[in-house]
């Protein structure tokens, strides 16, 4: 008997309501990708990803799409960490996120951690497409294994394009079956949490933000109005602290 995984998708469209606020004409989620609108502030709409089931499991295919239209402001978080678990069906799980931020729009994409549990196999893609003058704060955190557990296989690719130009294209592969050396001194050096923040602000200009550096964390101006904060840490808690501090540095 073949067991096929779950397919689930969620879609958000944020639109300026013409009165300084942001409406959500589309807010569709299902099963493990249920969505809930929460109280926003100022002109910003807020949405929570509420995982109704644990997952993704092996063979599952999740897709999330958010489009922030011109002049709208959206903040998306998640109610809890996402845990990649081994499933009944063979093959990797997929989790594809596509974010479009139109000219002059703003998106804060701040989900909780992705935890790669032992035996899981997940391929995540996050593709962000930004228009002129768009603003973005995107956080991505991966924790390799639950407490005292070996990690699963996890590959994550993050691509950020602005005005048709690819500003950032990075893929990290770790866990059993990943190309060797992933846990060695060039890549993760035994760290069990790794994460990044992408911050795009028109006022950054090309390389205008100075790179600052701490223990296991660097703020790196990209070749456009954007910076990447890259961090590694012993655990998820320390990782979050490092990313929060770096974000505070950016003002």
């Amino acid at each position: 008997m073949t067991v096929s995984g779950v397919r689930a998708s969620a879609r958000i469209v944020a639109r300026a309501d013409g009165r300084g606020g942001t409406a959500l004409p589309v807010l569709e989620g299902e099963g493990p990708l249920a969505l809930r609108r929460t109280r926003g502030s100022g002109g910003e709409a807020r949405v929570m990803l509420v995982g109704a089931m644990s997952g993704p499991l092996g063979g599952d295919e999740f897709a999330v799409r958010a489009a922030v239209e011109s002049g709208a402001r959206l903040r998306v978080g998640s109610a809890a960490a996402t845990i990649a678990l081994p499933g009944q069906s063979k093959g990797a799980a997929r989790y594809d996120v596509r974010l479009d931020v139109a000219d002059g729009a703003e998106l804060h994409w701040m989900p909780e951690q992705l935890i790669s549990a032992q035996g899981s196999d997940l391929y995540v893609t996050t593709r962000v497409v930004l228009g002129t003058g768009a603003r973005l704060v995107l956080r991505e955190e991966q924790v390799l294994g639950r407490a005292d557990e070996q990690p699963g296989r996890l590959t994550s690719r993050l691509t950020v394009c602005i005005e048709g130009r690819t500003l950032l294209d990075q893929e990290l592969s770790c866990g059993p079956g990943a190309p060797s050396g992933w846990d060695g001194p060039a890549v993760l050096g035994g760290c069990r949490a790794v994460g990044q923040l992408v911050v795009v602000r028109p006022e950054f200009g090309a390389g205008a933000v100075a790179g600052a550096v701490g223990e296991g964390v660097a703020i790196m101006p990209l070749g456009g109005p954007a910076v990447l904060v890259s961090a590694v840490a012993a655990d998820g808690l320390r990782l979050r602290r490092a990313l929060d501090e770096a974000l505070a540095c950016l003002g």
Binding site: E171, L172, P185, V187, L188, G189, V213, A218, V232
Partner: peptide
């Protein structure tokens, strides 16, 4: 070129910034 590998090594990138300082 979008199809080209993008394999990254966080410690190489972070280490390069530390080194440059």
């Amino acid at each position: 070129v979008g199809a080209l590998p993008a394999a990254s090594a966080p410690l190489l990138e972070i280490g390069a910034e530390v080194h440059a300082g």
